[in-house]
Design a protein around this nucleic acid. Structure first.
Lengths: 340, 340
DNA sequence: TTGAAAGCGCTACCAC
DNA sequence: GTGGTAGCGCTTTCAA
């Protein structure tokens, strides 16, 4: 039953020289034929012989050798880090990837979690990418950027909550989420606003700017902002709910819909009326929030479509040395439902 | 403020020859020093000069040139496809990635959505990976496997719901989810069981085997299984709930917790008592299911820890040509709560 | 302890 | 039309 590998596993990988030999032509001719080189005319019969030889040997060109010879690659490097990333990011990355592929770039995600930020750029540079889109979680220093550029990267782009000075930046400004949520609560007349801060590590990167945004929105109205540490566990929520009345709050922005559902349930179990006594706002506009009673108010988030960004990368590659550009990717909007 | 790129952008990328020149040594010596070659003794003063020259020039070795010379790479290729993947997969991939990195492999995710399954292996083979872990969504033919092996891949591994004959396989058998859920319902005395089939494209890959598993579990008990198409939208759920009583079911396995929450809310709104009239089971054991009333029964899913799998890949690379191995990655367990 | 040189697989220039 | 060949950046054997 098991298709045991009959092939002598150590047969060497066929090269263009092997194809040339089998087809009875030179390596140059093989290269011309297989690349459909327009600068040279090859007879149809030769073409066929070459192609047949290639198929017969299972010849596959060696990308590294090719780009070594060419002196450049079309690789766009996307360093990735372990990340509590939702469907939003997922879709965005996928779109960006296909957009770039359409422009004939080879997109490669390179797991970079735990890489020392100081030598991450070095490691990336070894691959000689033509562009790098680095996540904000790996702080990119001017030295790092310089190193990448010197090793051939035409475009070095950061992707994160804040732009990085001196580099192109795709910005997902999380502060807007916080200010949008608080804006909704202020409209509803709330002035004593808790802001849930998840204790799960990794979320701080989102939570901190959301808190900042909340503060910025509250300030002009003289509203009070109270950070509320919370773990994503029922006991943690219950404990917070237990001491709720001592906090003297009339509203809470719960970081996102999931934390909001958790906290809302705990508040209700503790006899706190939502929204009468405390209004609750989440973020992400999950379908599930609509199913709760009261229906959960939320902040809807949308990322820019990725095709224009693929075009942007292409432009930066073709015209390196432009002044750093910042692009805001995040669009937010409050969705007021029954909970606030 | 903006650190305008003062560097003459077109300064050529420094090579080991440049380092050698600056340090006043040969390229060989540069290579010895920078690779800490143990087979050769270099004076401390030379070492320092070389290192200083390298730093000064911002020299970064060229990975492609290196592997071209070496005749092999340590790249593990993970073709990825657009996919409604949850935190479970996410964590798994990340663990696998760091596990392999620990073994000194370079893990590279390569977006392969929309690639013609016939030439996907060709494209992958151009990168000369030493191992490929291909998702089940891209059917890997024996020819494809052969092509990859012939171009130097020591290990070709599939990762998906079903093993692929003739290749190593990491299996996440979704049928077990279905049988586990139905097992729970059977235990509770239910015999007329609906199985939600999400209409969202892409989910079929999971939903179909779950249905199969449900059928396999129901068969010996003479229980009836009824597939129920459902979109992840309130109206779709409401419509299903409206005609619920005509379906004559006493239980439903709702594909996962999210669909379960959606459907349960619709059933309740339609006046159907859960669990008395209809029991509901989800899957994924989301925290949110515990917050519902009644609390949602579910199927807990766990993926195997990835480090042993990284070790497996390493073993397959070192001993190519072993008989195909199948490893079951998915562990499931029913979690009975109030809804069933 | 260091250097010279070959050669990995490929493409592109220049002869024939 | 087709072939010879140089050279991309690197490592490694062999000689000095």
């Amino acid at each position: 039953m098991s298709q045991l590998p009959n092939q002598p596993a150590q047969r060497p990988v066929p090269t263009s020289a092997d194809v040339a030999r089998l087809a009875g032509v030179s390596r140059a001719t093989v290269s011309y034929v297989l690349n459909n080189s327009p600068t040279v005319r090859i007879s149809e019969s030769t073409r066929r012989r070459v192609r047949e030889a290639a198929t017969e040997l299972g010849y596959v060109p060696h990308a590294a050798a090719r780009s070594l010879r060419a002196g450049h690659t079309r690789m766009v490097l996307l360093p990735t880090v372990a990340f509590p990333t939702g469907p939003l990011h997922h879709r965005f990355f996928h779109e960006l990837e296909s957009g770039l592929r359409r422009l004939d770039y080879t997109v490669v995600q390179y797991g970079s979690t735990g890489l020392d930020p100081d030598d991450a750029p070095r490691v990336w540079a070894e691959l000689r990418p033509v562009a790098v889109i680095a996540p904000g979680t790996i702080p990119l220093t001017p030295q790092g950027t310089g190193l990448l550029r010197r090793s051939g990267a035409k475009a070095v782009i950061t992707l994160g909550p804040r732009p990085v000075p001196g580099a192109h930046a795709l910005v997902m400004d999380q502060r807007e989420v916080g200010s949008c949520a608080v804006g909704l609560l202020l409209e509803r007349g709330r002035r004593r606003i808790g802001v849930v801060m998840p204790e799960e590590s990794g979320l701080a990167l989102f939570a901190e700017p959301r808190l900042t945004g909340a503060r910025q929105a509250a300030q002009p109205h003289g509203a009070r902002i109270e950070p509320l540490p919370l773990r994503y566990e029922e006991e943690s929520a219950a404990r917070l709910a237990d001491r709720w009345r001592t906090l003297d709050l009339d509203a809470v922005f719960a970081y996102n819909d999931e934390y909001a559902m958790l906290l809302m349930r705990a508040l209700q179990d503790a006899g706190i009326d939502v929204p009468r006594e405390t209004a609750v706002v989440g973020a992400d506009d999950l379908m599930l929030g609509r199913l709760l009673r009261p229906r959960l108010s939320t902040v809807r988030m949308e990322l820019a479509t990725a095709q224009p960004l693929a075009d942007l990368v292409d432009r930066l590659v073709r015209h390196p040395g432009c002044a750093p550009e910042h692009h805001d990717l995040l669009r937010v909007g409050a969705v007021g439902r029954e909970s606030a």
